[in-house]
Nucleic acid binder design. Structure first.
Lengths: 98, 98
DNA sequence: CGGTATCCGCCGAGATACTG
DNA sequence: CAGTATCTCGGCGGATACCG
């Protein structure tokens, strides 16, 4: 659970599934996340070997984040959980109202 | 994620998979959990409809917790994630050492 | 037996400002 | 563009004591 622990981690993986993205592209894709949390979560995802960071030493800077093989496997493993959530989301939201 | 969020929630589901358990049985099965957290997590699992609470009005009190159908589906949906974790646990633990 | 009530430390996460 | 650096706050989770 530690790997997907963090408010935005599953969403970051989701955003990277279709190909590499640059830092600000990720930032724009995730409305509400702060730069701090994005950086922090990306670092942890790297440490856990599910995300790869490629830095192109240019001016202006360019850094691309992409999924590793382990990352793609993780995203697949998250699929059934997503299906479950889709099926029960209404009940859960209702319960959290009270 | 809110449904499995909480330090012990997945473990509680795991403990209930083979049949109903009483409060203290759960408590003994989960070394390290406090009564407070067990109660709190069980309440949330009930609210989210994955665990059922059956209270037998006796002296001494008897309360049994069991999985609902949604709970069993959730546990199944957690399976692939568990498989992924088993496969990559060594790398993750190593990364968390530093 | 199956919980509540209370106090407390830690840190995840937000907001804001600054930088190479 | 892609980050750091601080400050702050709420709340999770642990410890302990008490209760019907």
């Amino acid at each position: 659970m530690a790997v997907v622990d963090g408010k935005w981690k599953p969403l970051i993986l989701w955003e990277l599934q279709e190909g590499p993205k640059r830092f600000n592209a990720l930032h724009r894709s995730l409305p509400g996340i702060s730069q701090k949390m994005l950086t922090q979560h990306l670092k942890e995802l790297q440490r856990h070997g599910v995300v790869h960071r490629e830095s192109y030493h240019q001016v202006p800077p360019k850094v691309e984040y992409s999924m590793t093989d382990a990352g793609r496997e993780l995203l697949d493993a998250l699929g059934p959980l997503g299906d479950w959530a889709t099926k029960h989301i209404a009940m859960i939201v209702a319960a959290d109202q009270d």
